[in-house]
Nucleic acid binder design. Structure first.
Length: 307
DNA sequence: CTAGGATCCTGTCAGC
DNA sequence: TGCTGACAGGATCCTA
């Protein structure tokens, strides 16, 4: 999916547009994407939005009915907000998540799964090409008790703050290290992708962080010192911070001034999807390989396996 | 308990 | 051009 910085970008963009909006109607085009019990649907009726939150890669929209809508965008989810009767390029509109042409066309299109209509005519589209993503509706007080939410590792820092904290707390470092130590043989990349170890790291920021920290992704977690792990967490945090501060993958950053489509990775990525290009640090050619079952980008000179 | 692989689904792209 | 297989910004489920 859309990783933590993208979900955080969505949270920021939707907060100012959704707070106070009253739901008029929900249209479900794909049942798999809308995992809501029939008896809970009454809590959507004429509900007003009172908050937009995020934990790890889960977006939460709080309603005044004491229920919360949960969104997981997985690999290809997008949220697209359109004001009533607006032109596609209206500045009040907003789109973020998996970057595709759906941001630039009339909706619904073939990957639209759920549509939220508001009283004032504005609409929120949940698009998801591969249908891995989901929307759930739970009593607000039950959200933290959900298995996935309850088992999540700590947030690296509070990325929801306008000014992202410069330092990771000692408590977070310690909890991260403690949870990494439950894994021995597994490659470090696979370990940091485990949401129970630390919340919110996905394939992009795993590769970016490992590159910045000069750690080979296939290094068995056991071989890394506490100092290595602290450096790695800092590096991931730096990469995520740069991404959020450049606006994540939003329509604004996807469409260039000449109307062509840009690549938001250009704004902060040093290795991700840059195979064949020069390592920004040493000039060696970046290669693509596979670690922990995922496509993995490394500089073979900067990142060597510790013996 | 951890580790590794298959799996959900649609679309795109490289290679024949 | 048309087909085929690999792969994709995630996480779960199954087996060993």
């Amino acid at each position: 999916m859309p990783e933590l910085p993208e979900v955080e970008t969505i949270r920021r963009g939707l907060t100012k547009r959704l707070i106070g909006q009253k739901l008029h109607h929900v249209t479900v085009l794909e049942n798999k994407s809308f995992q809501v019990e029939d008896e809970d649907k009454v809590f959507l009726k004429e509900a007003s939005i009172i908050g937009v939150r995020r934990r790890a890669k889960v977006l939460m929209i709080d309603l005044d009915t004491m229920y919360t809508l949960l969104f997981h965008l997985k690999m290809t989810g997008q949220l697209i907000f359109r004001e009533a009767d607006s032109e596609l390029d209206d500045k009040r509109n907003f789109a973020a998540g998996h970057p595709t042409g759906s941001w630039l066309v009339d909706l619904p299109d073939r990957s639209t799964r759920v549509i939220f209509d508001f009283d004032n005519g504005a609409r929120l589209f949940f698009n998801d090409q591969r249908k891995f993503g989901w929307i759930k509706l739970l009593p607000t007080s039950e959200v933290v008790k959900q298995k996935f939410m309850a088992e999540l590792g700590p947030e690296i820092v509070d990325f929801t703050k306008e000014k992202i904290p410069a330092k990771i707390s000692e408590k977070t470092y310690k909890e991260f290290i403690q949870r990494v130590r439950k894994h021995t043989k597994a490659p470090i990349k696979g370990v940091i992708l485990d949401q129970k170890v630390i919340a919110g790291i996905g394939n992009i920021y795993a590769d970016e962080g490992l590159w910045e920290a000069k750690i080979h992704p296939a290094t068995p977690a056991q071989k890394l010192s506490d100092k290595d792990l602290r450096r790695l967490l800092r590096a991931v945090k730096n990469s995520m911070t740069r991404s959020i501060e450049s606006g994540g993958s939003t329509m604004k950053n996807y469409v260039k001034s000449d109307g062509s489509r840009g690549n938001y990775l250009e704004r902060f990525a040093n290795v991700f999807r840059r195979e064949g290009q020069a390592c920004p640090r040493c000039g060696t050619e970046i290669i693509k390989t596979k670690v922990a079952g995922r496509g993995t980008h490394i500089c073979p000179k900067c990142q060597k396996i510790e013996e």
